[in-house]
């Protein structure tokens, strides 16, 4: 272990105490290695910008929430809402990430090496989510801004009720959600996506992208039209 690194054990300790230890390590400018994580919830939330955390094993709900510029690596799986509300920084999940990855995030990047659960990027307002596997049911739901980039495919109801966010999928899309259209991306747009993938070593020029954007009809939705959208 480097002297610049501190090891924090989770086990069955109180989460508040663990996050306080993380705050202290950040204040001392130490990198943090977190062990015996036991898939516990609420780890590494609200840390100051510039923190560097490495979780050995899996974490539970909300890991890295409200990230303001930390670099967070999770070796294995993450539970629901990893990186919820994050504004900046970088989160890497080595395995699977549960529902609502990056919910309502406004900036930064989340990189999931496996698949995600439903509603990946729900209501996100900025930033990028890169998923090497598949994104789950109804991913991109009401995403207002930012990009979700799925290299392995997407589940049912993809990009449902999207706003100004974009969902890019390189594999199969099981079905589309309401008010979504698929556009052919321009070369400039593909270059923008490749610029996000490049630091992750994931550029592949042979990909056949499906770029999903809003059809914009729901933007002017009125309740009298509900039956037309099969909502009632």
């Amino acid at each position: 272990m480097s002297t610049d690194e501190i090891v924090i054990e989770v086990g069955e300790r109180h989460i508040r105490e663990i996050n306080r230890d993380m705050q202290k390590a950040c204040a001392a400018g130490k990198k943090i290695r977190v062990v015996d994580t036991l898939s516990r919830h609420n780890l590494g939330i609200g840390l100051p910008p510039g923190a560097d955390l490495h979780f050995e094993g899996s974490v539970g709900y909300y890991c890295g929430g409200l990230n303001t510029g930390s670099t967070i690596t999770i070796e294995r799986n993450a539970g629901w809402a990893v990186g919820e509300g994050m504004a900046d920084g970088h989160i890497t999940v080595g395995g699977y990430a549960g529902m609502s990855v990056g919910a309502a995030m406004i900036g930064g990047t989340i990189h999931v090496k496996g698949d995600t659960g439903p509603r990946c990027g729900v209501a996100m307002k900025g930033g990028n989510i890169v998923v090497e596997g598949k994104i789950g049911y109804q991913s991109g739901f009401m995403a207002h801004s930012g990009k979700i980039i799925a290299l392995g495919g997407a589940g049912d109801s993809c990009a449902d009720a999207l706003w100004e966010g974009e969902v890019w999928v390189a594999g199969d899309v099981k079905s589309l959600g309401v008010d979504v259209i698929i556009e052919d991306p321009t070369a400039e747009e593909v270059a923008e996506v490749d610029a996000i993938l490049e630091p992750l070593g994931l550029v592949d020029t042979s990909r056949n992208w499906r770029k999903m954007v809003s059809g914009q009809r729901l933007w002017y939705f009125e309740s009298r039209d509900a039956s037309a959208w099969l909502m009632i």
Binding site: S39, H41, G60, Y61, N77, G79, G98
Partner: peptide, 8 residues
């Protein structure tokens, strides 16, 4: 319901 429970 939660992974942290099965990890007990």
């Amino acid at each position: 319901t939660e992974e942290q429970a099965v990890r007990r």
